[in-house]
Design a protein around this nucleic acid. Structure first.
Length: 348
DNA sequence: AAAACGTGGGT
DNA sequence: TACCCAAGTTT
């Protein structure tokens, strides 16, 4: 296929030197692919280096406890990836003697490994000719072929996967897959693609029809929900506080936070200290103060958390208390980590 | 099978 | 500012 050859030619000239491109070790490839799901290379790179240093083999990762894995993952987001990563590491280490599955089909059975990741690992590590379809591939193909099927519709997913599979260079599928992705990331970018110096300009349908900026098509945007978080930060004379693990469904599962009083609308100090949750937490009198003089709005992909941090000085708390020195050992959301940095800085 | 799941960079 | 979107997967 001409397109494949052109992409590979471009890739060999323009590719980025990345640590996971020096190896076919499936542990490293798997780790990098999980980290890069919905994540830019620049953001994932330091985490890849930290993980490979801390856990040189899948056995090392399997041995760690989940909290340590989450701590190292802290700040990378989509924490289910870290939990699935750890689960799969244990599975591979304990059930498969540390040997990763070698086919697309078997790789798909691993937790956290979907169509894209199975294709990436199978092609890069084992030369299986299975095409990856990530955000870059959707963009490159929709423009090059002028396809306006919404990429997040069932029809689009199927259509693009089938098309991608017909284009793959079966003699070097791993190189081809990385070529089309790097081309999408660096050249056929979402905004300001480099069409004027594009090796595919002659045959690009979107360019010919002046539709580049309209492709790919994505249907419907999610609507953002607002939530109101009041974090209660206990401080005792013994230099203790309280940290709780987030459990069950929802955001930040497995991460830690201060006791949270969530409300559907803004509330003031009076309502807060009269609330049942607050009075239950503190049996003795307290001194309360707001840490920031304005609300912190922490933005997630699909919700805005309007947040206040309340410093509560007290003798005793109706929860398990820990020393402040222990706090930084726990994995916490970025929202909490930012507060901690400023609070501990101010405190010292 | 639509919705949930984080964070940060870019415009 | 607000919105897009980034090497997607799970439920």
């Amino acid at each position: 296929m001409v397109l494949a050859k052109q992409l590979i030619y471009w890739y060999l000239k323009n590719k980025r030197e990345l640590p996971w491109r020096k190896t076919k070790n499936p542990y490293h490839i798997w780790l990098s692919e999980i980290m890069l799901q919905q994540t830019r290379v620049a953001q994932g790179l330091p985490y890849f280096l930290a993980f490979t240093k801390e856990f040189p083999t899948v056995f090392d990762l399997a041995k760690a406890n989940e909290s340590k894995v989450l701590k190292l993952w802290q700040g990378l987001g989509y924490y289910s990836r870290a939990r699935n990563l750890h689960f799969t590491a244990k599975y591979v280490a304990e059930e498969l003697n540390g040997v990763f599955p070698k086919t697309y089909k078997e790789l798909l059975t691993l937790k956290g490994v979907g169509d894209y990741t199975a294709s990436a690992i199978a092609s890069i590590c084992y030369n299986e000719p299975v095409a990856v379809v990530d955000g870059n591939v959707y963009r490159v193909l929709s423009r090059f072929f002028g396809i306006d099927t919404p990429i997040n519709s069932n029809k689009g997913v199927k259509e693009f996967k089938e098309l991608a599979q017909t284009l793959i260079d079966t003699s070097q599928p791993g190189v081809y897959n990385q070529a089309i992705m790097d081309f999408g990331a660096l050249h056929c970018k979402p905004q300001n693609p480099l069409c004027h110096e594009c090796p595919l300009a002659d045959s690009c349908v979107a360019l010919a029809k002046n539709q580049v900026k309209n492709l790919p098509v994505k249907e419907k945007t999610i609507k953002i929900k607002k939530r109101y978080f009041n974090y209660i930060v206990p401080v005792t004379p013994q230099n203790e506080t309280v940290l709780e693990e987030r459990k069950g469904k929802g955001i930040w599962q497995g991460l830690y936070q201060f006791p949270l009083i969530e409300t559907t609308k803004k509330i003031g100090e009076k309502e807060l200290i009269e609330s049942k949750q607050f009075t239950t937490l503190f049996p003795k009198e307290t001194t309360i103060s707001l840490f920031y003089n304005k609300d912190i709005v922490h933005k997630l992909s699909h919700q805005h958390l309007i947040t206040r941090f309340w410093i509560v000085k007290t003798e005793i708390v109706n929860k398990e208390m820990i020393n402040w020195a222990e706090v930084k050992k726990h994995p916490v959301p970025v929202l909490i980590d930012k507060f901690l940095q400023e609070y501990l800085n101010e405190k010292s």
